[in-house]
């Protein structure tokens, strides 16, 4: 019972953070709201017993990715008139209609999963050694490809962010 209440609180926090991200005109505030939402998602992982992913979520998402976002926002140092955020009323209407429709569809799918129950003890923690074994046996090729992608991304970022040479 307390688990359910806790989950509802965390879910409410995540949704409020997401709405705050969308409604704040300043991108820095948006980024901070998103950090809050990501923390709530980490809490959801914890409640589901995926403690390793919760830690990785906080380190990688809330730590690295959002700091990168804040870095870029501060690097660009936008003036208020450069935010580019004055959504057209029509855009708001259609956006709300379409995403509301999407929400209805997705939630009805979620409702259809009513018969599915968590197998075993829902609070049982994920066996991390088992996770590691899977990563380096069944998913070894995927790990190698992911490392290659990270390398390519690193090189690509350096190339993209480099100032173009004069006269080229």
């Amino acid at each position: 019972m307390t688990l359910k209440v806790l989950f509802l609180l965390v879910a409410l926090g995540a949704v409020v953070g997401a709405i705050g991200m969308l409604s704040s005109p300043n991108p820095v505030h948006s980024a901070l709201f998103l950090v809050w939402t990501l923390f709530c998602v980490a809490a959801v992982y914890l409640l589901l017993g995926a403690e390793f992913l919760a830690i990785v979520q906080i380190i990688v998402y809330a730590g690295a990715i959002m700091v990168l976002f804040l870095f870029i926002i501060m690097l660009l140092n936008l003036r208020r008139d450069e935010f580019g955020d004055d959504p057209l009323p029509r855009q708001w209407g259609w956006g709300l209609i379409l995403s509301g429709l999407l929400a209805v569809i997705l939630i009805s799918v979620a409702g259809a999963a009513l018969t599915l129950r968590f197998a075993g003890d829902p609070l049982a923690l994920t066996p991390i050694p088992e996770l590691a074994r899977m990563l380096f046996t069944k998913y070894l090729l995927a790990v190698e490809i992911a490392s290659l992608i990270l390398l390519i991304a690193m090189v690509g970022v350096v190339v993209l962010a480099k100032r173009p040479k004069e006269g080229v």
Binding site: M21, L22, D85, L98, I107, A113
Partner: peptide, 27 residues
């Protein structure tokens, strides 16, 4: 435990809010 469809509903709501953001934001 937490019912599975609650978790899926949270996932659906967050996904829709993300889609809403891509649709209405210009920044």
């Amino acid at each position: 435990g937490i019912p599975l469809n609650w978790v899926l509903a949270l996932s659906a709501v967050l996904f829709s809010l993300g889609a809403l953001g891509v649709l209405i934001k210009r920044n």
